[in-house]
Amino acid sequence: MSHHIVEVKNLRFTYPDGTAALQSISFRINHGESVALVGANGAGKSTLLLHLNGYLSPSEGTVRIGDLPLNKDTLKDVRKTVGMVFQDSDDQLFMSKVYDDVAFGPLNLGLPSEEVNSRVIAALKKVDVEHLKNRPPYKLSGGQKKRAAIASVLSMNPSILVMDEPTAGLDPRSRRQLINLLHGFEHTKIIATHDLDMVTDLCDRTIIIHDGKVLGDGSTSDIFSDMELLNAGHLERPLRMQSCPICSKTTSKINVNKCQTAELQN
């Protein structure tokens, strides 16, 4: 299934104002992989994502999506393959009804109306928001908006999902529901995030970006146990891999007791 491969080779990008956002980035993501892109603010994650669907074109280097090198002629096909979920759902839900938003992509693909309708309903069902189809987007909660935004991408049947900070701004339950939802998807997933706990749940592989370069690329468990690497990338271990804040301060008997009582109360 070569058409689900994402290959980036020696990618460089400099913004018109002279900021070198990406400096020689290379990686290859295979079909069905779930990969996290992590790194400090301004490391270049979002810029990199914008290259994956051809919104920005590299100053140097190449991006290949499946069998196609990304260029002007292949842009349409690439955008059909790569579904992009933006950080702010308000940017993505631009129509006046959720249904119209989810139908926007399929209609642009020129599909017949029955097919559009069935795709829209299927996408809405998949993310569990079918009951919201006639609502205007501004009346949805953050979690609902995010689901609707994902549905608007799913309706185009992409094989690769690219997401920018999917859990940002969600309450803990919505976040958990979203993680469970994404877990069920078979798409190749590329997720840029600061939510390292989600990464441990969802992604087998993690790429650390720092100052526009790949600082580390490997299995999530290896990356998160390398403290030196995490420090260099302005990151820290996911909270659940850190030790209990109460026990770790001191090993005295009193504190151990305190921790046990706290656990019991929870």
């Binding site: 955008r79 992009m84 109306s113």
Partner: peptide, 22 residues
């Protein structure tokens, strides 16, 4: 900035200058 991002989101879903509706 937002207009730019919205335009980007529209392009990602095949916008070609026309908004179609069922």
């Amino acid at each position: 900035d937002r207009a730019n991002r919205i335009h980007m989101a529209m392009l990602c879903r095949g916008f070609d200058g026309e908004i179609r509706s069922l």
